[in-house]
Design a protein around this nucleic acid. Structure first.
Lengths: 145, 145
DNA sequence: CGCAACTAAGTTGCGCACAATTAAATAACC
DNA sequence: GGTTATTTAATTGTGCGCAACTTAGTTGCG
């Protein structure tokens, strides 16, 4: 395939991913408005709801976010009263993030969000899983490059 | 499927898309470093290389970007000497973006980028097209919601 | 004509993503 | 034990994405 044609295809593919990511973001924005959360903040809360208290480093590894993104984000969650920072006594470099009662309680309000998102995508659960698998595969390939 | 399980799936899916989008961005960042372009700037240049001079509005519609994003981005491309703004004489509200000779010439340097990206994804061209189709379908569903 | 409604682009403000740097604590090593 | 290297967060600076608003030009309607 000639370079020029590949350039056009690249246009299509990278744009599609970009657009899909932002379209998801937009619908999440609506769905999360009532909870007072942004999409990345929701991702952090999902981690905490599922796994309980975790150091910043662990959250960062799970979400592929560095401290440059997480530090201010967590500060906002803290001032919203949803999480609490606690510096570890064993290793004082480490800061563990805990849910406050309010943060824990927000999980109840978040429960209907995924169903709403699922409906918005227009895909079945199986298709969603397929998409997820494909994306995970691409991501791991890209990480090696 | 119970809400709690859906919440976990949501975690997986929305995270996958988020992660894939950022993984793509990271590899593009490397591939475009030599061209001095960011990923969104590259998208704008792709549009101009393919279609020629276009008003800001048309670029925005094609890339789903509003003037809040495009105005400063185009200003940076202009100060990099790659594009030129020209206010329309028929409708003085409209500004048409033209490639400068330098901007046009950059296309030559950009030609090998897609092949490099394709290799980095680890997908075949057919798989890429499939992924693109799936994403486009999701995006259009999300747009209606 | 004159005025209201609309449209295109730009501006401002906030949050995220990421590179680069800094500060403090811990680990490793001679 | 003391020096060096590594690790964990935080900070700074740049750019994107988007909502809300502003400015200037155009259109439509009485």
């Amino acid at each position: 395939m000639p370079d020029a044609e590949l350039l056009r295809l690249d246009h299509q593919v990278c744009f599609s991913l970009h657009a899909a990511s932002r379209a998801f973001g937009g619908v999440y924005r609506d769905a999360l408005k009532d909870l007072g959360l942004t999409y990345p903040q929701y991702l952090v809360m999902l981690v905490l709801w599922e796994h309980g208290p975790r150091p910043v480093k662990a959250i960062g590894e799970q979400l592929r976010l560095d401290s440059g993104t997480l530090s201010p984000l967590l500060k906002r969650l803290e001032s919203a009263g949803l999480v609490r920072r606690e510096r570890s006594t064993q290793d004082e470099r480490s800061v563990t993030i805990h849910l406050t009662p309010a943060g824990d309680e927000l999980r109840t309000q978040a429960l209907p969000v995924p169903r709403r998102m699922l409906a918005a995508t227009g895909l079945t659960i199986e298709e969603l899983r397929t998409l997820q698998g494909l994306l995970a595969r691409v991501t791991s390939s890209l990480d090696e490059a």
